[in-house]
Nucleic acid binder design. Sequence first.
DNA 1: CTCACTCTGAAAAATTCTTTTCATGACAGT
DNA 2: ACTGTCATGAAAAGAATTTTTCAGAGTGAG
Lengths: 290, 290
Amino acid sequence: MTVASKTVSDVIHSHFGALTRAEKQLAESLLDNYPVSGLGSITTIAENAGVSTPTVVRMVQKLGFKGYPDFQAHLHQEVEATISNPIAKHDRWATNAPGTHILNRFADAIIGNLRQTLTGVDTATFDSVAQLLSDRKRSLYFVGGRITGALAEYFFTHMQVIRPNTALLSANSSSWPQYVLNMSPGDLLIIFDIRRYEQELVSLATAASKSGAEIILFTDQWASPAAKLAKHTFRVQIEAPSAWDSSVVTLFIVEALIEAVQNSTWDETKERMKTLEGLFEQTRLFRKLG
Amino acid sequence: MTVASKTVSDVIHSHFGALTRAEKQLAESLLDNYPVSGLGSITTIAENAGVSTPTVVRMVQKLGFKGYPDFQAHLHQEVEATISNPIAKHDRWATNAPGTHILNRFADAIIGNLRQTLTGVDTATFDSVAQLLSDRKRSLYFVGGRITGALAEYFFTHMQVIRPNTALLSANSSSWPQYVLNMSPGDLLIIFDIRRYEQELVSLATAASKSGAEIILFTDQWASPAAKLAKHTFRVQIEAPSAWDSSVVTLFIVEALIEAVQNSTWDETKERMKTLEGLFEQTRLFRKLG
DNA sequence: CTCACTCTGAAAAATTCTTTTCATGACAGT
DNA sequence: ACTGTCATGAAAAGAATTTTTCAGAGTGAG
């Protein structure tokens, strides 16, 4: 590499005195709105600067680059450095852990997943789903796969407290038809399906669709085939430094939804929670007496 | 201009469902380190994504661009917008969300929890627990409370694949005594108990201790009363901008443990997973993904 | 199992970009 | 005015990039 560790801008400045008229004109055009102005083809920047393409070639070679592609590669690196620095630079996580400890590696991966997932999730989608889930008139059905069943259960457990008409479909698909039988148009089927997508869930989604139920899908970045049937889909980044996929970010979305739903109908929810507390107390009392 | 005012990222996301396998692979590659990854020539990005150049052309046309140059011109505009507007960088979190959207508030909170938890967790403890869980001679018993039951189930589901002698205690405490009856000295009882600590779990922990079982506890920063009986305790930050506590970081620790255990006995685990795959194939529960 | 279909990348064709060549013109010194 | 030097861009040559074509592989339906 001819030019090391100095920015292209630096190089231009240091050579500026040795440039000819047309080259100075070009250099100023490049420095104006640097470094973006150098992103296009040699033809483009020559036109923008009002010079000919040979002038561009001559100048970048004079600056020490092998040719225009070499020059542009350096610019790209700088653009990358400028763009991709911000929040990511966390100062080491677990203080007393070596940098390669699984906890730190995992943390890095999860933060990356979270970031990517959030840039991919449309807040309008999120809000729509929250509103659908808040609608008491719609019954809710939760279902997950072998691994994601626990997420479905977690979601269900909370929603059951917040509102009526919620059901958790068991892992055993033989009982699913009876649930589908009861689905009315407007009801919601919340499906968790990440890779090693389960064919049965697609069948379930199809059947539910025919009953008029609307489907909300939590899946991974590669998207379950059920996505075609879903009204709203959350595509979550699930990759971890592990033989297993990570459900952490999925759980994150679920918890955010729980809060959004609860928040939209807090008065009613509060009442339900109070009642529930009372019921728990009574149960404990039963136990103690028994 | 074919595509107006939407970012290339948006366009990719909105078309993602309609993309084919190779195209999704390419889209992932582009979104990873976006938008810099799309700065090079079509050949470069095709190579980076591991697809052919025709795939790139087909995808960008499917996305609504005239061709690759058109696509890249849009990217350049975005890079320019991003660079020349420093404020825009920070809200790359959730794209078009105001800073106070629940998703962003939640993300901030979770990152904080994660950071705090990791500085609090001793890696020696983590490694000890991983080693205990790897020991085939010890039987594992998982149990959780009303909310945390799903976490116990999640942990159990994975460990069941990785190693033999695992059991999930049902939510119904009436069946617990039979499990305690079978516990031998050295067995492990993994308890999840976060606030609104459940008295029954303390009773269970006490009984298990008397049988010689060792207790691993996942609890919150205030620590469940069962902590006194536990050999190892993970104190996790659980506060979220919500009426509910967050289980995200707890799940994070669980997944890291799963990986650590699996990694320490990978050969054996691999065999088990293969066998399991075979069983699934036989029952046609799973289906190869496309 | 067969057939129709889609997806995919190798390779060719078309296009665009990059570099080189070269003629022109400006200018300084003789 | 003449000559040599240099800067510059038009245009050609050379290299790439981009697009199109096409055949094989894979998939799903019947």
